[in-house]
Design a binder for these strands. Sequence first.
DNA 1: AACACCGCGATTGTACACAATGGAGGGTGG
DNA 2: CCACCCTCCATTGTGTACAATCGCGGTGTT
Lengths: 254, 254
Amino acid sequence: MNEQLQPLKKQPRAGKAGRTGTQDDIVYAHIFEAILEQRLAPGTKLSEEALGEIFGVSRTIIRRALSRLAHEGVVLLRPNRGAVVASPSVEEARQVFLARRLVERAITELAVQHATAEEIAELRQMVNDERDSFSRGDRGAGIRLSGEFHLKLAEAAKNAPLISFQRSLVSQTSLIIAQYESGNRSHCSYDEHTQLIDAIEARNGELAVNLMMHHMDHIDSKLNLDEESASDDLHAVFSHLLQTKKPGRPAAKL
Amino acid sequence: MNEQLQPLKKQPRAGKAGRTGTQDDIVYAHIFEAILEQRLAPGTKLSEEALGEIFGVSRTIIRRALSRLAHEGVVLLRPNRGAVVASPSVEEARQVFLARRLVERAITELAVQHATAEEIAELRQMVNDERDSFSRGDRGAGIRLSGEFHLKLAEAAKNAPLISFQRSLVSQTSLIIAQYESGNRSHCSYDEHTQLIDAIEARNGELAVNLMMHHMDHIDSKLNLDEESASDDLHAVFSHLLQTKKPGRPAAKL
DNA sequence: AACACCGCGATTGTACACAATGGAGGGTGG
DNA sequence: CCACCCTCCATTGTGTACAATCGCGGTGTT
């Protein structure tokens, strides 16, 4: 029952979630990755004590990681009732996408102006990694790397507040994609990423923005935001009932 | 040395910082207000233990409040070295203002579409409060209320991610204004706020956006971002070097 | 005299113990 | 038989003790 991975002293575990920093980051990254990989379904309760045993740290660390995840919108923190994996409603998803269009447009324009050759090279490398992940069939890693691409682009824009906001938006987008994306189609075609890099490298702002907006369109269109899919999305369909509101009769049986 | 205000059990102290919620919020609001009122100069060290004694709570609460302030960019959290009041550089200030232009434009457009009559009434009330504060000479409250106006506008836009981002931007803007604004000119003329509300109520999107952009221009122009002012801005000029200065008495009274 | 190294003090980082809250289940009354 | 209430338990919220870390000042050497 109480299997606990080794107290995660050093060991980067470089293969998986991002590079090791402080313990918080490790816990944060692991939970985040688990959510993206859909090993943690939306609505799943995240008990502090259980997580603490799993990662071999105290609740203090877990609490910080959860707080951070909550701030990025990936986890919902209910006072006195613990944390659950967020399950964005269709309306929330729309809001995130609207905000992303806005931010991505600005980021693209700024990146065209400020991206260095080194950054462009890094971006190309990331697209390669992303393609590899998808060809390996590692969908979770693919979604994560695709998000990291957009985050890297934000860094190239050289605007700290936008980077921070983009991080939050990308996190939520990843969760939404994991939750709503239909079937197994690659959600963020790396072709579009490559074209985008080309336009940025050519300092063609107008083209870059157009590509980015089309890219956003494609992401939108691949999601089933208009009507709920039926079978295994029960969690998503009902989660808004059985975790937050509805003080009276909160879905008696679940 | 150990002067400590009463353990802040309930007592809303409604006059000052925002309405009382949980203890975190009280501590957060008080520190935030102290920073805006410039009773806490940029660069001032925020010792957890000292704050804990002042507010009569344990370091746990203080730590959460500081973490939140850090996330909003008002406080700088240096690992193993404690927290200090942030002192945005000119470059950082420019980035914040760029991001704000972006966000305010979008918020204005959305508010024109979605603001309800009730929200518009609330906005007008807030402008009244703001004017009262300035006429009373309460500059800190004025800056804070002006920020809350822009935040309320974001709420009228009905987009959760934008609201969250705007909260962070407004906080940082307030700090920048407190730090850089020249003299005693009212920084956010409520006339402009009133005109803006009128345009929104008339559902005139183009006019509203133009007013907002001019409003941003005015805020920009009132700051001394181009060249440092000499006398009392030494803190700002050097704070990035000597973050630990001013060890004595962090705000004699709160 | 200046530089470098080492130990000390202060402050933050972490873990844990206790208090408080909310939900679930059983029991009782209508 | 159903509904309501009351108690108990699981889980989170808070305070505190202890450990780790960093900066600073003393001391010795070159």
